[in-house]
Amino acid sequence: MSAPAFTTRAVVKDRPQPGVRVAEVTLRPRATDVVVRPLAIGICGSDVSTYRWGTDRANRMRVSLPVVMGHEIVGEVVEIGPAARTRPGVSGLAVGARIIAEPIVACGRCRTCVDGRTNLCYERRVLGLDVDGGMADLAVLPASSVLPLPVALPPTEATLLEPLATAVQAMAKVGPVAGVSCAVVGPGPLGLLLTQALVTAGATTTVLGTERSRERLRLASTLGAAETVVADAEWTRANGDRFEVVFDVGGPTALLQAVQLVRRGGRVVYASGSDVPVPIAFNSMLKHRGIDLLTSTGHQLDAWMEAFALAASGGVRLAPLIDAVVSLERVADGFAAASARSVLKCVVVP
């Protein structure tokens, strides 16, 4: 038997135009769902793209309107559906337990899910995009999206564990990095988390940004980067063929830069999220230089476990990345600031 429907305040995207709004929505939990009280929800780059709608990649993303926004969710259990109690990750939970959300809602049946690669599910859906997310006073999450939170962190900081798991998943593409020269293109939240994880793993890490990201580059230095650079076209030409591994977390134009900077026989990991076409001459820029172009999306369970361990050990610091916290009432201000890049990371606290 399912829990009764209820009404709650939520941040909703319900029109194919820029903006979001706070509205009363009715949620209908199923027997396989968990009702959660969100304590903090991060505003991610994909949230900003949905907020902008007409720019970036929003018009190419699979967004089902109307939808409750938010996938970087930390909360506490309010109610567990009867069919959810036996699901992995939920069976040991009690009302009041702290949880973090796995944004990818996987089918659990396709061959990649059976292999444990739920991030590559053939029928994948994503919280806050085509399934209601958690930017609300109360949220309904599929049991498969509920993970116990084993790390004692303030909820605002814990929201960054999800992008940290994304960074760890990207690192897994290249294996051990101790002593390896790595570059991270894009000093946003994901790039700064990736930088710290690389440094902790022993990589010599350079972080590259643009003129407008000087403050973020300064933060990267305090977080352990060996070098930070405003990498314009001239610098990129002068430093071509330099790094063993280059991670692109900065968008489509950064991919071309990453390919230029990686040395012969090196590896480029594309972990950004845009469908904007990139002009790359595959023969001369990749094949003839022996470059491996790898991609990474989402995270698997072992990446979550490593993210928890990094945060618990202090190998990755989360608090320095958060420079804005807003209530549901002020969420439009938070989205506007994130869209304008006047903040690094904004977290919503209902």
Rank of each mutant, 00 (worst) to 15 (best):
Y122C: 03
K173V: 08
D14S: 14
T222Q: 05
S49P: 01
A101L: 05
Q260A: 13
G188D: 00
G89V: 08
V269T: 04
S342N: 12
A281P: 00
G209P: 04
L328D: 04
R28T: 14
A203C: 11
S213Y: 05
A340E: 14
G290T: 07
N239A: 06
R57H: 14
D137Q: 13
G250K: 01
G96M: 04
L301W: 11
A167D: 00
S284R: 13
T159I: 12
A143N: 03
L192P: 01
A94W: 07
G134D: 03
A84V: 11
R341L: 15
G108P: 05
I291C: 06
A101M: 05
T166G: 07
V126N: 06
A5L: 01
V36W: 11
S339I: 15
V276W: 07
D14R: 08
P148T: 09
I280F: 08
L217M: 04
L294I: 09
A94Y: 04
C346D: 06
A337L: 15
Q196W: 12
I104W: 00
L219G: 02
R109Q: 10
R330A: 15
E72N: 04
A178C: 08
A84M: 08
G266W: 11
C346Q: 10
C107F: 08
V25D: 03
V74W: 00
A254P: 00
T222D: 03
T86L: 07
S49E: 15
P350F: 11
S144Q: 11
W304Y: 13
V207Q: 00
S49A: 15
V11K: 00
C107I: 09
A258S: 14
L286D: 01
W235F: 15
D241Q: 09
M135S: 05
A136K: 02
V269Y: 05
D248M: 05
P176L: 12
R124H: 13
E234H: 07
L129T: 12
R57Y: 15
A319T: 13
S296D: 06
V151E: 02
R125I: 08
S181E: 14
M69T: 02
A165N: 03
E79Q: 03
C107K: 02
A324Y: 06
N283Q: 10
R341T: 13
V126F: 15
A40T: 08
D33K: 10
W53H: 12
E329F: 03
L261Y: 07
D137E: 15
E329C: 03
R214L: 10
L321A: 10
P18C: 12
T8E: 03
G298I: 10
V12R: 00
L161M: 07
L161P: 02
I104L: 02
G81R: 00
A311E: 03
L286K: 01
S284V: 15
A97G: 04
T204N: 07
V25M: 07
G334I: 13
M1K: 04
T55S: 14
F247N: 04
E102K: 09
V68C: 02
T159G: 07
R214Y: 01
L39I: 06
L198T: 08
P103R: 02
V278M: 09
G133P: 06
Y51E: 06
K287I: 14
P252F: 04
S221R: 12
V199N: 03
G290L: 09
